[in-house]
Each structure stands twice: as structure tokens, then as C-alpha cells.
Design a protein around this nucleic acid. Structure first.
Length: 117
DNA sequence: GCAATGACGCTCT
DNA sequence: CAGAGCGCCATTG
């Protein structure tokens, strides 16, 4: 595992939750998107969908976690967008071949990650 | 230890 | 499909 522990706040928090979430997000194959609830569930913490977003929010730039592939169950990009992160995510998804409309909506029906492994 | 917050999920309208 | 309300739980002040 890459030293993603550089997650400043996350590393200090010492909660395995963050690490578990990061691992689940990394599990997402390219060209697919997953939901916070799914990540929480895959990470072994069902119901902690909110904390998934919290963990990603604390995610450092040095991390190789494809957080942009994580969206809400509605297939919508819900981000604080304090620094234009939402825009970044939209661009990244488009780069992955994922169709995102002007409202930041993605077709989970088409790109929603399906555990096929 | 309590109160407030948040990149959420689900149901109803 | 869009909007509003309620519930869940960990992190932070």
C-alpha cells in the first residue's frame, strides 16, 4: 500500500474507517462510478455513507484514490465545491468515459459499478 | 461529555 | 425527474 497515510487529519484520527474506505474506493474499476453507500458497505461499514464522504473530504492531494468515481446514490455529484472540486470531478469522469450532464448527473444505470469480479 | 456539522440514503409529495 | 423532510453515524469544536 502506498503511504497514503499522509492523510493528515485522517492519519491522526487513527480510525481504520478511513483506511477501509480508501481501500474500497481504490477497488472501483476505471470507467465506472460507485456510491457512498456502496463504498461504506464494501469497506465493511454499512450505514456510514456519510462518513465515506467525510473521509474523501479529508483525502490529501497526494493520494491516488479515485475519489472522483464516488458519487451519491442519486448518481449526482454532491460536493462542497469550495475550491471547484465538483468541476474537477466532472472533468475527470468525462476523461474516464463517463457521461456527466450539465447538472452533474451520471447514469448509474449505465456506469454504476457492478461487482463483476 | 454534549452540541453542531457533514462530498449521504431513503421515502413521500 | 425534482424538491423537501427525516434518520444514520463519525468527526470536530
Amino acid at each position: 500500500m502506498r503511504m497514503s497515510r499522509t492523510a493528515g487529519t485522517a492519519k491522526k484520527s487513527g480510525s481504520g474507517l478511513f483506511l477501509a474506505i480508501y481501500r474500497a474506493v481504490r477497488r472501483i474499476p476505471a470507467g465506472c462510478v460507485s456510491t457512498y453507500g456502496a463504498i461504506a458497505r464494501l469497506s465493511g461499514h454499512p450505514g456510514l455513507a456519510r462518513q465515506v464522504g467525510y473521509a474523501l473530504a479529508a483525502l490529501p492531494h497526494t493520494s491516488t484514490v479515485p475519489w472522483h468515481r464516488v458519487i451519491n446514490a442519486q448518481g449526482r455529484i454532491t460536493l462542497s465545491d469550495a475550491n471547484g472540486a465538483a468541476t474537477t470531478q466532472r472533468l475527470r469522469l468525462l476523461a474516464e468515459g463517463i457521461a456527466v450532464d450539465g447538472s452533474g448527473r451520471v447514469s448509474l444505470r449505465e456506469f454504476g459499478w457492478k461487482i463483476t469480479e
